[in-house]
């Protein structure tokens, strides 16, 4: 898989490039600002863009904007966004197929991170658990009917994990996970859907009310 990486900290950029290569991907370009990201994507046509939100020159949300400008021209271009903190105001709005949103701290969990890159590249949706936690914190009423276990399952589902992955993560059987999910969807009045990312989107759509 060919990756274009945009991150202004040299230390992290090199670390991320090393990580991606360790998992068998090709880092076509590793750049340090938004214009270079746009140029690199035009040149290399990568399978996925991994970008920091904040980048030079303005240090606000250049990376995010550049990524979405690229997506406007190349519909469906997978983008994994790395952020220093959860920007709740728009995180639920920007999510969609082939988009991932992770906090930078998550990079340290290398296996999960590599897994997230692959899932986003495959058109899936990945949301940082912290986002789900914060969104859950806002919501009362129906979400309060969920048991703590169901909340855990919901958070993992919102990260874009399959039933098997959720089951591994919680050390339960897949059947148990399926039952939890059915319960959650029933409690939240969510339509049942097949694809992972559709489930995620359904959850997010619900969470942002």
């Amino acid at each position: 898989m060919r990756v274009v990486l945009a991150e202004d900290s040299v230390l992290l950029r090199e670390g991320l490039a090393g990580l991606l290569e360790r998992f068998g991907h090709t880092v076509a370009a590793a750049v340090g600002d938004a214009p270079a990201l746009t140029a690199a994507v035009a040149e290399h046509e990568p399978d996925i863009v991994v970008t920091d939100v904040r980048m030079p020159p303005g240090f606000t949300d250049e990376g995010l904007r550049a990524a979405f400008a690229l997506r406007a021209v190349r519909p469906g271009l997978p983008v994994l966004i790395l952020s220093q903190y959860v920007q709740q105001a728009y995180v639920a709005e920007i999510m969609g197929p082939g988009i991932g949103y992770l906090l930078k701290d998550r990079i340290g969990h290398v296996r999960e991170f590599a897994d997230a890159v692959e899932r986003v590249a495959a058109g899936g949706t990945v949301v940082d658990p912290e986002v789900v936690r914060q969104l859950l914190a806002h919501r009362r009423d129906p979400l309060r009917r969920l048991t703590p276990r169901e909340r855990e399952v919901l958070a993992l589902v919102a990260e874009g994990r399959s039933n098997a992955a959720v089951a591994r993560s919680l050390v339960v059987t897949e059947a148990a996970v399926a039952k939890h999910i059915a319960n959650i969807f029933a409690k939240l009045d969510l339509p049942l859907a097949g694809d992972d990312h559709r489930r995620v989107l359904a959850v997010l759509a619900y969470l942002r009310g």
């Binding site: 900290s9 230390l11 990580l19 701290d105 990079i107 340290g108």
Partner: peptide
């Protein structure tokens, strides 16, 4: 702290995570 220690710690967790692999 953000530009210095925090970035280095992220890089450190990354390096240690890779070493574990």
């Amino acid at each position: 702290l953000h530009d210095g220690a925090q970035q280095r710690l992220v890089a450190l967790t990354l390096a240690l995570g890779m070493a574990r692999l």
